[in-house]
Design a protein around this nucleic acid. Structure first.
Lengths: 338, 338
DNA sequence: TTGAAAGCGCTAACAT
DNA sequence: ATGTTAGCGCTTTCAA
């Protein structure tokens, strides 16, 4: 069994309280006893029982991250990187990270509710915000600490980090138009996501700023996976007059779209341009390397994590709302159309 | 604030004890009070305080998963999928999942030790076993529950799930030799990993079974990332007499190797064959689609998770040691050599 | 059928 | 400088 304060107390012939205080470094304990206690504690390999401390302190020093995922074969590199950022930063502050994966919907909300009510964690990290986000409403109603990566449609009165993806997509459209493209299509995320709202708008405004017509049939929705991107691209490419460039709203869909193009015998970067968003590590190693919009996902993870911990610890945030400017990464998948 | 047993007790005019028993469904409480208590509990939105229960029961109903990662830009799809499997299965049994990412080494061991000593979790999931694995030694010495995905060099006296990757690589070599290849190279994982041991051996034995010479210069080590695979492939391809096929020991390295080949103007699947291992979702959508060895990573995640929970709950496992047979997935990256 | 009391391991207010 | 007491919220004897 594990060493407790009581064990140490018995060994040094002092009360549990004194031992507790000696270990906590309070100065109302004599130099001698403190020394002795710390010495013995080290010898015995004492580590405080976290659960007991949590109960006493009414904090868990734990944050939760519920990943919204569909289906079992889930593996978006975007999430792993974000997760690493959140977790590593939390660890720096002595916080643990509780992770679950739930499809958006009732089960997901139930998970949040249970963690709130059972005081399982001190706060939440929210990702992939929805235009009207139940998770955020729930958390706000319960006055529970959280930080979001992303905004919602109205009342963004909560701490968040987001990137200006509208602007990112506009940059992309500019780039493609410069390359001589006039027939641009867009593979957009599911419309309930706030992502979709910004990126779609960036696409439309990008076209308009170049006086290009907006063809609704060239804007397709897909589920952010390769499969989704591939199917959407197949639809686009089988049109009588297909687009010459496809702006996919994340890298995974772009990779799927590239795969569809290859299968039709097209050479991406020559016969057609395809672009992504996120700049996952694989983008650089795709064939051809993928032109995309870079998002500092790991850093965003560390930022939201630190913000959340500050909130939990009652500190005031210098910036409640952080909006980052993404940058365009031009690679070979968007070479000039011949 | 949250609802406690005491609150309910006051409301129904009964003791905390009775309320506790009523809610737990014990039969030594009158039908009437049970009804009433449950009713009131629901009305008040009672959820037990997990921390208090943990302290009392001396269990946390939580398992830990410490991902061994190098560097911050970590995003191996392999891990996300495995994580989802572990987490979803745990949730089915009412267990939570604590996740951290640590580079192998001191910090990592410290994390294990802390979680053990502080009784933070009830058990561990270990992945990417090392030939001589400190994590496993530590856990065994502390008699702490764990299940590993992978084996170690000696004394595999612990519960694990593993795939027969030696055999998987041999299948791959067979396939490539059938395609007419005689100059096969291998991009192997870091040699301290048990993975490396099996896969390398599979490669060597595969060659020997076809009476092909084993050229040590054709066996390079890389770190399981695209970058690593790319560099290794560059080394191989710049040799005076380069290999005609490259067997990468995971998909990420294979993707990196493909990228290196393309950059040299080679067409993968025609000028050179490149194969992977894992069958991550991206493999299918690579250009060309990647020939690889399929591992049911998600299922392995659910298996180890369930095994661990069974151990924690004191049940005996039907199979302490599970070894799965992987299957070959032939795609276009390994077409016949012309 | 119910309740009082003890205790899980820790911290903190209040003596001394 | 140290100890006593109480309590975090829950479960579990043991008694009534």
């Amino acid at each position: 069994m594990s060493v407790t304060l009581k064990n140490i107390a018995e060994r040094v012939g002092r009360s549990v309280t004194t031992v507790s205080r000696a270990l906590a470094g309070y100065d109302d304990v004599s130099e001698a006893t403190r020394r002795q206690v710390q010495q013995v504690a080290r010898e015995m390999g004492y580590v405080p029982n976290i659960t007991a401390r949590q109960l006493q302190k009414q904090r868990t020093d734990t944050i939760a991250f519920v990943m919204p995922t569909y289906g079992p074969r889930f593996s978006d590199p975007f999430f792993s990187e974000f997760l690493a950022g959140v977790g590593n930063q939390a660890a720096k502050f002595g916080f643990d990270l509780l992770v679950s994966t739930r499809p958006p919907g009732e089960e997901e909300i139930a998970t949040y509710l249970k963690n709130i009510r059972s005081r399982r964690v001190d706060g939440f990290i929210i990702v992939r915000t929805r235009r009207c986000d139940d998770r955020i409403t729930l958390l706000q109603n319960n006055n529970f600490p959280f930080v979001a990566f992303g905004r919602v449609e109205k009342n963004n009165e909560f701490p968040f980090v987001d990137e200006n993806s509208e602007w990112g997509i506009k940059l992309m459209v500019d780039h493609l138009v410069e390359q001589g493209h006039t027939r641009l299509a867009c593979i957009a995320p599911p419309s309930e996501l706030m992502l979709a709202y910004y990126r779609r708008r960036g696409f439309v405004q990008g076209l308009q700023s170049h006086n290009l017509p907006v063809n609704e049939r060239f804007i397709l929705e897909a589920d952010l996976t390769q499969q989704g991107g591939r199917q959407a691209a197949e639809t686009l490419l089988s049109m009588p007059r297909p687009p010459s460039a496809i702006v996919a709203c994340n890298d995974l869909m772009a990779l799927g779209a590239m795969s569809a193009a290859h299968q039709r015998g097209l050479t991406v970067g020559r016969d057609i341009s395809i672009t992504g968003f996120d700049d996952i590590p694989l983008a650089e190693h795709a064939n051809p390397p993928l032109t995309t919009v870079h998002q500092p996902v790991y850093q965003i993870g560390t930022m939201v994590s630190e913000m959340l911990i500050n909130i939990i610890q009652g500190k005031t945030l210098p910036d409640q709302h952080v909006i980052l400017q993404p940058s365009l990464i031009i690679r070979q998948s968007s070479r000039a159309k011949l």
